[in-house]
Structure formats: C-alpha cells, structure tokens
C-alpha cells in the first residue's frame, strides 16, 4: 500500500506542472481535429445554392434542422440507426470477449504452439482485406446471409488487433502470481478467467470496445456490398444522399454530422467513464 500512497503523492507533484505549452499544443490539435466536423456542420446548415456560391465560408447557415429533416425522410434513417447500433454493439461485444479470451490464453497460459499461434495472429493482420472480399462473399452466399446484418457482424467479430491488444494488456495488467495462486488453489481456468482475468482486463477492454464500436460504426465498404438498400447501416444509407445527378452536399454533409452525433453523445455520457476510468485505473491502483 505504501507504493500507492507514494504514487498518489507524486501525482500531485506532477499535476502542478501542467504547463501552458501543453495547453497550446492541445488547443492546436483540437482545432485541427474538430475542423472537418465543423466544416461538415457549416455546409450541412446551408442551402445548396449558398454552398456552391461561397465554398470557403466558415459561418454556419440557418438550415441545419431543415436539412436534417430532409435527410431523415429521404433515407431510411431510423432503421439504419437501429441497425448501426445493433451491429456496432454486437461487434464490440464479440471482439472484446473473443480478444479477452485469446489474450488471456496467450498472455498467461502455457500451451504447446503458443508463440507460433501468436505470431500467426499478428500475421493475419497483414492479409490485404481487399482481395478477401470475393471469397468472403462466397462464404456469405453459402450461409444464405446476403443482406443480413450477421454478414456484417461476423467478419468484424474477429479482430487480430484486438487479440494482440489484449495479449499485450493482460501480460502487464495481470500479475503471474495471481494466476499461479489461483491454480494452486485448484481453480479451473474458466474460473480464473472469469473472476481474475476479466476484471483485470476491464480498462483495456473498455478502450478496445470503444475503438471497435467506432470503427464498426463508420465501416462502409463491406456493408455496402452485402446489405440491401432497404435494410442498411448508417453509412450505407447515407450513401443514398449522393443519389441524384447533381449531388446536394448540404444534405450529404448534414448526414455526416447526423452520423457522428450518436458517437459524440456516446463520448459525452460514456466518455468520462471510459477515458477517465481507463486512465485513472492506472493511478488509483
């Protein structure tokens, strides 16, 4: 416990050190980060005549809600929103669970072929995804999943990145002594996994879950191929805004903002917990 007090103390020491430079750097980064979203908002709040006539204006117009209601009625927005929430949540859960399981085994269990398999996992990240689409389509066709949301979920549910991440994470976050102790106590590996590894993995898993959720939310290419226009995810549905011969970018970028909004809401409500939790877990220990 003494270490922990010490650390908390030193944390205080460092807190006083937050320099103006740090704020300046971060402010610049934040402005750059927010720019495209702001730009989308600006364009998305004008009528189409205004954007072609004055493309470099940074001041929003007054049509945001009007454009938004056009977007929502032009495309199956609510259905797509529901689908996106379902798909992203399911994928995030699968990825976190499977990655935690595999990460636990790779990080803490001894078995024949362990390092070989781990290298194999990392190597799988190197498979160029573009070419995999054709054989993958054949798989989905065989499963009868063309147009089904599961055809989107399944390929995303396997994440070599996630396994790599959880392996690295658990290697450090989960002391060998704990595993050893529980083994000596005669606990099954399942129990060890459930009551020791999973709780220890929580901060890393939260971050992995967040990243996976966002990545799935913005994923376009494969869902576009496999899903129906009548049963789309958000990016696929928003694509329909670019339908006409003349594309109205005020609607397209309005849609971009609408699609990002749920993620920003997620940030506001879960972000504090997610990020603060992840980070502070480290310090509080």
């Amino acid at each position: 416990m003494s270490t922990s007090t010490l650390r908390r103390g030193s944390r205080l020491v460092r807190r006083t050190q937050a320099s103006p430079t740090a704020y300046v750097i971060l402010a610049v980064v934040l402005v750059g980060s927010a720019f495209p979203l702001w730009w989308s908002f600006v364009i998305g709040s004008k009528d189409s005549a205004a954007i072609v006539q004055d493309p470099f204006s940074f001041i929003p117009g007054g049509h945001f809600l009007q454009n938004a209601s056009t977007v929502v009625t032009t495309i199956p927005f609510w259905k797509a929103l529901g689908n996106s929430i379902f798909v992203s949540t399911t994928v995030a859960l699968f990825v976190v669970l499977f990655s935690a399981m595999a990460g636990f085994a790779f990080a803490k269990l001894r078995f024949r072929g362990r390092s070989g398999l781990l290298v194999f996992v990392i190597a799988t990240m190197a498979v160029p995804t573009q070419l995999g689409i054709v054989p993958l389509f054949i798989v989905m066709s065989k499963l009868g999943w063309i147009g089904s949301l599961w055809a989107v979920i399944l390929p995303s549910a396997v994440s070599a990145f996630g396994v790599f991440w959880m392996t690295q994470y658990l290697q450090e976050a989960l002391p060998d002594e704990l595993i050893e102790a529980s083994r000596v106590d005669g606990a099954s590996t399942l129990r060890t996994f459930w009551s020791i590894a999973l709780p220890a993995a929580r901060p890393g898993a939260a971050m992995l879950g967040l990243f996976t959720f966002i990545a799935t939310w913005t994923n376009f290419f494969w869902p576009f191929i496999i899903l129906d226009p009548g049963n789309p995810t958000l990016p696929v549905a928003l694509q329909q805004l670019q339908a006409a011969y003349f594309v109205d970018y005020s609607l397209v970028l309005n849609g971009v903002v609408l699609m990002a909004l749920p993620l920003i809401v997620l940030f506001v409500f879960a972000g504090r917990q997610l990020v603060a939790g992840i980070m502070q877990g480290a310090v509080k220990g």
Binding site: S4, W165, Q168, Y169, Q171, E172, A173, L174, P175, L178, I196, P199, A200, R202, P203, G204, M207, I278, M279, G281, A282, V283, K284, G285
Partner: peptide, 10 residues
C-alpha cells in the same frame, strides 16, 4: 508495456 493500469492489485 502497454499497461494502462494495474487495477488487479487493488
């Protein structure tokens, strides 16, 4: 390493 934390300890 990548360890964001040692929550296991507490």
């Amino acid at each position: 390493g990548t360890t964001p934390g040692m929550p296991s300890r507490a």
